[in-house]
Nucleic acid binder design. Structure first.
Lengths: 72, 72
DNA sequence: AATAAATGTAAAACATGTTTTACATCAAGA
DNA sequence: TCTTGATGTAAAACATGTTTTACATTTATT
C-alpha cells in the first residue's frame, strides 16, 4: 500500500502541520503515513481524502503485496 | 462509519467464514466489522471491497459523526 | 424433533495505529 | 549568516484492530 498524499498536499500548498490540523490528526501521523511507516485507519483515510479533494480509492494504491501475510 | 458488507456478502451468498477466508481475516473480525464493533484497517477494507466486487468508497459510508473526537 | 451450519457473545493476548514530547536537519527569506 | 518554517528521527504511552479460543443462540435442513 502506498499513497499520493504528499503529492496532493503539495498541490494544495499545505504543510504537514496544516493537513494534520484539517484532518484532526497530528503532524507525526501525517508524516508517518506519507513516508509509508504505516497506513492510516479507515476513518483517517476518509478524512485525508476529503480534505485533499479526492476519495480513498484514488488516494491509496493497494498493491498485490498487501495480499501477503504481514511477515513476508 | 458504517458499511454494506453484510448486504453485499448475502448477495454473493457467502458466509462470514467464507468471506473471512477469502480476505485472509478471521470470522470474528468479519463479524465485528459487520456489526460495527470497530472499523477494519485500510488494508482489510480494500480486500473486503475487492472480494465483494466493489470499492472502499462505495462499501463504507463515512458519516459526519466520524469527524468528531472519539470521546463524543 | 434432531442435527448441522451460521451467527453471536466474550475475553485475553497480540499487532498496528496515534499521540505526545523532544530534538535534529533542511530550505528559504530577512 | 541568522532565524524561521517545514520536514525528519525517535521512543514511550496509549488507543484501536485482529487473532485465538470457547461457548451460546439462531436458522436451515432432514
Amino acid at each position: 500500500m502506498h499513497n499520493k498524499i504528499k503529492d496532493l498536499r503539495k498541490i494544495q500548498k499545505l504543510s504537514q502541520a496544516q493537513l494534520a490540523t484539517l484532518t484532526g490528526a497530528t503532524r507525526q501521523t501525517i508524516l508517518a503515513i506519507e513516508n509509508n511507516k504505516y497506513d492510516p485507519s479507515l476513518q483517517l483515510a476518509f478524512k485525508i481524502a476529503h480534505v485533499l479533494g479526492t476519495n480513498v480509492d484514488n488516494l491509496f494504491i493497494y498493491t498485490e503485496l498487501d495480499d501477503l501475510p504481514h511477515d513476508f
